[in-house]
């Protein structure tokens, strides 16, 4: 495991925990897209089914379980415990427009036509677009709380670090996975606009708000 991969994983973990803590401490999920969080829970569930079939390492197993556990906890906080604070009216992205094409693509373009492989591929494709409901919500309300932008930054950083990890692995291990790379590039591109706003506004102490 190279340093980019490790920091990518840690950044991903930081994102998940930042979001969970933000909701827990403020007792509110205002401004958070429950739909994106459901999509991430689906992503982790379909990708980590191999927990049941193969053991890779203690690190691998524990991280997978933490990701799954935290994503379900987040969904629970949004849709059950702090449901009263959930801003459903602004969370109006139609997720079927993501799930259906992504499911079709996973069936068409995969490494192996088997259930676990198709679900793995589905999770890779779905992850690349799972943040869209959240970005859509921000574009609708025109603003995001600073802590929410830290969450998004860590999510985007995680993806960017994974891209560097794949370049590294290609050079030093001759390893590459086209499905993961293409989806990873798409996912990282989706964050570019946000990265720009984060650097030009949030890091200078301003709240992230979009021009009307």
């Amino acid at each position: 495991m190279n340093i980019f991969r490790l920091f990518g994983d840690l950044s991903h973990l930081a994102a998940i925990i930042i979001l969970l803590l933000k909701i827990w401490k403020s007792r509110s999920c205002a401004g958070i897209s429950g739909k994106s969080q459901i999509l991430f829970a689906i992503v982790f569930t379909t990708r980590y089914l191999d927990l049941l079939t193969s053991f890779i390492s203690l690190y691998n197993t524990s991280m997978k379980m933490i990701y799954i556990g935290c994503s379900y906890a987040t969904v629970y906080l949004i849709y059950a415990k702090f449901r009263a604070t959930y801003d459903g009216n602004h969370d109006s992205f139609r997720v079927e427009f993501l799930i259906v094409p992504v499911g079709g693509l996973a069936v068409l373009i995969n490494h192996d036509f088997s259930l676990l492989e198709i679900l793995w591929t589905f999770s890779i494709y779905l992850e690349s677009v799972a943040i869209l409901p959240q970005l859509f919500m921000i574009s609708k309300t025109g603003e995001a709380e600073t802590i929410t932008t830290h969450y998004l930054f860590c999510q985007g950083l995680y993806r960017a670090l994974y891209l560097i990890n794949w370049i590294w692995r290609f050079y030093f291990e001759g390893f590459f996975d086209m499905i993961a790379i293409v989806a990873g590039v798409v996912q990282t591109i989706l964050y570019c606009d946000f990265f720009y706003l984060y650097v030009t506004k949030v890091l200078k102490g301003k709240k992230l708000s979009l021009p009307a």
Binding site: R5, D9, H12, M63, K64, Y67, R169, F175, D177, A180
Partner: peptide
């Protein structure tokens, strides 16, 4: 093999 390497990632 490729598949095992890939599955090592999160």
């Amino acid at each position: 093999n490729n598949q095992q390497t890939r599955k090592d990632e999160l």
